[in-house]
């Protein structure tokens, strides 16, 4: 062994001996409630579901003084691994962000009956799982109402990802809101057939604009990026975003966004957990709970005038008061009649 190698080895040994002493653990002293979260493959930084959930978690850490960790999933195979690790490490509350994890939550929660889990956007029927869902139809109702008030062509459109019950809630609420404001407005609906097909999203949005629509409500995941591409080249046309606040992506072209406040849902569960209280089996968040709603139109005030905002506020109050029951399926939509206010 050369002299240089011996020196390097010695240095390495000193390093290992000296290092641990100078460095403290980050976690608060034992006893704090531990809350973990598993992202879906979108991961942190998706400016949508995962980021929103993480914001709720961070708020819980600040205000409730709980220990938190967020595990990111690089692939679908990671979901169970991550959930299992958190269960093994005795976390008091474990969040699964997104319906893609429904099956994994069901399996892991059965294996760890003494742990508690929460899943966002899906219903898992286990005693130790809280299913956090949203009344998307209520927020969509307001979006549809605004679209009907704003359209010049008396035609508006809905563009969905995959034709599944969750998406039909958006569609039904949106169409009902439009009908409430102006029954003569025509609503065209289309589904892309996927949540990540940008090219088809662009193509179908183009078709809907060509058919006379001037506002499209886009609930199509990544496919929505295609619609955003499309609206850039269309004067006097708008999109309505979904899930997160997407207004700033193309300022002035996104009329508003129907946001799902995942952070609100996460924080509410965290409150229960921090207080060692039982969590609800089902937590459903609508307009009343602040779980869904529209953004503040900060880029589109020229179109969304104060009278329209006032009208929306009135509709919102009517829904919260139960005067308007928003349909969440196509069947309910078929029998929906505008409610006189």
């Amino acid at each position: 062994m050369s002299r240089r190698r011996v020196a390097a080895l010695a240095l390495a040994l000193v390093w290992f001996a000296a290092v641990p002493a100078g460095c403290a653990r980050q976690r608060a002293a034992g006893g704090a409630v531990r809350i973990g979260m598993v992202t879906d493959t979108g991961g942190l930084g998706d400016r949508s579901f995962n980021d929103s959930a993480y914001a709720g978690l961070m708020r819980a850490q600040r205000e409730l003084h709980v220990d938190t960790v967020a595990l990111q999933s690089r692939s679908a195979a990671d979901y169970q691994v991550n959930l299992t690790v958190l269960a093994n490490k005795e976390y008091d509350e474990i969040f699964a962000i997104g319906f893609l994890m429904a099956r994994d939550v069901a399996e892991v929660s059965e294996r760890y009956p003494t742990r508690h889990f929460s899943i966002i956007d899906a219903v898992v029927d286990e005693p130790n799982v809280t299913s956090v869902t949203f009344k998307e139809e209520q927020g969509s109702f307001l979006a549809g109402a605004l679209a009907a008030m704003t359209t010049k062509t008396k035609t508006i459109a809905f563009l969905g990802g995959i034709d599944i019950p969750l998406l039909r809630k958006f569609e039904a609420g949106y169409a009902a809101g439009a009908r409430q404001v102006d029954p003569s407005v025509k609503v065209i609906s289309k589904y892309i057939g996927s949540f990540d097909d940008v090219a088809s999203g662009k193509e179908l949005a183009g078709v809907q604009f060509d058919q006379g629509a001037d506002i499209i409500y886009v609930a199509a995941g990544k496919g929505g990026l295609g619609a955003i591409d499309q609206v850039k080249s269309r004067p006097n046309a708008y999109l309505i975003g979904v899930d997160a606040d997407q207004d700033g992506i193309v300022p002035g072209k996104i009329l508003t966004s129907m946001v799902k406040r995942v952070d609100v849902g996460v924080f509410r569960v965290c409150q229960q957990a921090a207080a060692h209280k039982p969590r609800p089996v089902h937590l459903t968040l609508g307009l009343k709970e602040g779980g869904v709603g529209l953004t503040d139109f900060r880029y589109t005030r020229s179109v969304v005038t104060p009278p329209k905002i006032a009208a929306l506020a009135k509709l919102r109050a009517a829904i919260i008061a139960g005067k308007i029951v928003v349909p969440s399926t196509r069947e309910e939509l078929a029998s929906f009649k505008p409610v006189p206010l």
């Binding site: 980050q26 690790v85 490490k89």
Partner: peptide
Amino acid sequence: VAMQAEAL
């Protein structure tokens, strides 16, 4: 994964 969950 455990390292992340346990030692952050």
